[in-house]
Every structure is written in C-alpha cells, then in structure tokens.
Amino acid sequence: MSIQHFRVALIPFFAAFCLPVFAHPETLVKVKDAEDQLGARVGYIELDLNSGKILESFRPEERFPMMSTFKVLLCGAVLSRVDAGQEQLGRRIHYSQNDLVEYSPVTEKHLTDGMTVRELCSAAITMSDNTAANLLLTTIGGPKELTAFLHNMGDHVTRLDRWEPELNEAIPNDERDTTMPAAMATTLRKLLTGELLTLASRQQLIDWMEADKVAGPLLRSALPAGWFIADKSGAGERGSRGIIAALGPDGKPSRIVVIYTTGSQATMDERNRQIAEIGASLIKHW
C-alpha cells in the first residue's frame, strides 16, 4: 500500500482519535458579512469528516447552483462504474471539434489522439474542462443518470439537468442544476469515506481534487503551510461562485467545507476574496 493510499485508508482512524471539535460562531459572522459585502445569498456548511456531524452552517438547506462543483460527483459516478466493471479508466475516447464547448483548455489539445477516461476526469476536476465533463456525462448516460446515481446514494436534493455550459445559467428560483450545502457536503463525505467506492477509487477521487489547479484564489489562499486540501470550485452566471473541499491540518483532511453564493453584482475577484476570507476565519478558529 502506498503512503497516499495509507493516508486515505486511515482518515477515519486518525479522526477518531482527534480531540473533540467545537464550532466557532466567528466564522458564521464572516459568512454573514460576506453576504453584506456581496449583496447576495451565501450558503455555508462545515462537517466533521469522521462523524458527519454538522459543526457550523448557514442557509444549509437553500438551493444554490452547483456550477462546476458537480464534476466531482460526476467522476465519482464514473469511478463507481469502474468498480462495477462497467468502465475502464484506460479506455480512450475520441471526439471532434464539434464536441468542444466553451472553456476546454485540455480537451482542445487532444482532438487528434483523444483522451482516456482517467485523463478526462483529471481534466474535468483539476482544470474544470467543460468538454471533458460533457464527454464523461455521455459515458454514464447524461445528466439524468448522474441525478439517479445521487438518488441511489441517498441524495434526493442534488440534481443535474443540463450539460456544460448551460448548467451554469443560475436563474433565480430555478431548481435545475442545483444542490443544497448540506446535501453536497453529505454526498461528498460519502464519496470520500464511505463504502460506495473502493479504496482505490476513493484515493483516485481525492487525488484529482488535491491536484486542483484553478481554485488557488479561494480556500487555498488562506491555508497555512502543512495543511491538506482537496477541492473543486465552480463559477456561473449572475454572480455565482462555489467551492467544495476536504481539508485539515497535519497533512490530512478532517472536515468537509461547502460554500456557495449566487445573485451578486460583485466582480469575480471580490467573490473570490470573500470566500478566501471565510476560509481564513475557519482556519483561525479551527
């Protein structure tokens, strides 16, 4: 067993022997301040990774656009098919120029040779490549099948209805392509620590998230040296922004954090800054 596999296998073990965790309302004060600064709703939840206990939450059962955070769930569904012998990570998928959609920095470079399922998941999570996500959605049967996968996990809230990039439209009061912070946090925890996926697939999923290259201005910008984070960000229309993450000190994750916002007129930089400040408060009061 590799060191990384050992780390993920012992996530519940280490967490069980940690000192009790206590909620700190100071972080919620910052979440509410972010709402004021952005002029928009902000949803927040913080779960203990081992027990699933909610440590703090704000608007945990209000719907927010998922945006690209759905790509972690998508690759979880792909990995479940791999575990069941219905898919192979090494299978190569070929596609054409007509398949390319807006923001496809990886797939646009491989029109000639195609990409493997493993490479597509890596591109979808680490670079948020939209064509990679659409190609992977095709392998599982489309958005409705991802929703069905989530329902089978016990998540009857999260739903995907459309493809990239239309799913980022974020129309107010439109339930399409949305989740709730509580539902997303619980589902992410199941994917990373539950028995739904094999140990190898859980490790692969967290490795992809740990290698995320496009979430630097968010929670990662607030992390002290030595902290662990595996995350996936999302951005959408109407001032929408979000991030889902597993993080913790001492090089291992111990909490799940989900943050979503929508309806702001603020710039992307300002949305990023507010999420980073929430992260800084979380870490300060850990």
Rank of each mutant, 00 (worst) to 15 (best):
H24V: 13
H24G: 07
P25A: 10
P25E: 02
L28Q: 09
V29K: 02
K30Q: 13
V31I: 11
V31F: 02
D33N: 04
D33T: 04
A34V: 03
A34M: 13
E35S: 04
E35Y: 02
D36S: 03
D36C: 15
Q37G: 13
L38G: 04
L38I: 00
G39R: 09
G39D: 10
A40S: 08
R41L: 11
R41N: 04
G43K: 03
I45V: 01
E46G: 12
L47G: 04
L47P: 01
D48Y: 11
D48Q: 11
D48I: 09
N50P: 03
S51P: 01
S51M: 02
G52K: 14
K53E: 07
K53Q: 09
I54F: 09
I54Y: 11
I54C: 05
I54T: 06
L55V: 12
L55I: 15
L55Y: 13
F58T: 00
P60I: 12
E62M: 00
E62Q: 03
P65S: 06
M66I: 03
M66Y: 00
M66P: 07
M66A: 02
S68G: 00
S68M: 15
F70R: 04
K71P: 01
V72Y: 15
V72P: 09
L74Y: 03
L74V: 12
C75H: 00
G76H: 01
G76C: 02
G76E: 15
A77K: 00
A77I: 00
S80E: 09
S80Y: 12
R81N: 09
V82H: 06
D83N: 15
A84F: 07
G85K: 14
E87P: 14
E87T: 07
Q88F: 11
L89N: 04
L89D: 01
L89I: 09
G90Y: 04
R92D: 01
R92V: 06
H94V: 06
S96N: 00
Q97G: 10
Q97S: 13
D99E: 12
D99Y: 10
L100R: 12
L100W: 01
E102A: 03
E102W: 03
E102K: 00
Y103I: 10
Y103K: 02
V106W: 00
T107M: 01
T107K: 09
T107N: 04
K109Q: 02
K109P: 15
H110A: 09
L111A: 04
T112Y: 06
T112H: 01
T112Q: 04
T112S: 11
T112C: 14
D113Q: 00
M115I: 15
M115T: 13
M115N: 15
T116S: 11
T116C: 02
V117P: 13
R118C: 03
E119K: 03
L120S: 01
I125M: 02
I125T: 03
I125A: 00
I125C: 00
T126D: 14
D129Y: 00
D129Q: 00
D129G: 00
N130W: 15
T131Y: 08
T131W: 08
A133N: 03
N134I: 06
L135Y: 07
L135Q: 13
L136Q: 15
L136E: 12
L137V: 03
L137Y: 11
T138H: 09
T139K: 05
I140C: 12
I140H: 11
I140F: 11
G142L: 08
P143G: 04
K144F: 14
E145L: 06
L146C: 14
L146E: 14
L146W: 14
T147P: 04
A148P: 11
F149K: 12
F149Q: 06
G154Q: 04
G154T: 07
D155K: 07
H156F: 10
V157N: 06
V157E: 03
V157M: 13
T158R: 01
T158S: 05
L160T: 01
L160P: 05
L160D: 06
L160A: 08
R162L: 11
R162I: 14
W163Q: 12
W163A: 12
W163C: 12
E164V: 01
P165K: 04
E166W: 13
E166P: 10
E166A: 10
A170G: 09
I171D: 02
P172I: 09
D174V: 03
D177W: 14
T178Y: 15
T178A: 08
T178H: 07
T179P: 01
T179E: 02
P181Y: 01
A182I: 02
A182F: 10
A183V: 11
M184E: 13
A185S: 02
A185Y: 08
A185N: 05
T186K: 05
T187K: 00
T187E: 14
L188Q: 13
R189G: 11
R189A: 11
K190E: 11
L191P: 14
L191M: 13
L192Q: 05
L192C: 09
T193I: 09
T193R: 01
T193W: 08
G194T: 12
E195A: 01
E195Y: 00
E195N: 06
L197P: 08
L197A: 03
L197I: 09
T198C: 11
T198W: 07
L199K: 05
A200S: 12
S201A: 13
S201Y: 11
S201E: 12
R202M: 03
R202L: 06
Q203S: 12
Q203A: 07
Q203P: 07
Q204V: 02
Q204P: 01
L205H: 07
I206F: 12
I206R: 12
D207G: 09
D207L: 06
D207A: 12
M209N: 13
A211T: 05
A211S: 04
D212A: 12
K213W: 08
A215H: 11
G216T: 06
G216F: 13
G216D: 05
G216M: 15
P217T: 12
L218C: 15
L218W: 11
L218Q: 14
L218D: 15
L223T: 05
A225S: 13
A225W: 15
A225M: 02
G226Y: 09
G226F: 03
W227H: 03
W227L: 06
F228R: 02
F228G: 02
I229Q: 03
I229V: 02
A230C: 07
A230Y: 14
D231K: 05
D231H: 09
K232L: 06
K232E: 14
G236I: 05
E237A: 12
S240I: 01
S240H: 04
I243W: 08
I244R: 03
I244E: 10
I244Y: 10
I244W: 11
I244V: 14
I244A: 04
A245Q: 07
A246P: 07
L247G: 10
G248N: 06
P249M: 13
P249N: 03
G251D: 08
G251F: 10
G251P: 08
G251S: 10
K252N: 05
R255Q: 05
R255G: 04
I256P: 01
I256N: 12
I256V: 11
I256Q: 08
I256A: 10
V257F: 05
V257H: 03
I259L: 12
Q265Y: 08
A266I: 03
A266Q: 07
T267V: 13
M268C: 06
M268E: 05
M268K: 03
D269C: 06
E270M: 15
R271M: 07
R273Y: 07
Q274I: 05
Q274P: 11
I275W: 14
I275V: 13
E277D: 12
S281H: 06
I283M: 08
K284A: 07
H285V: 06
W286Q: 03
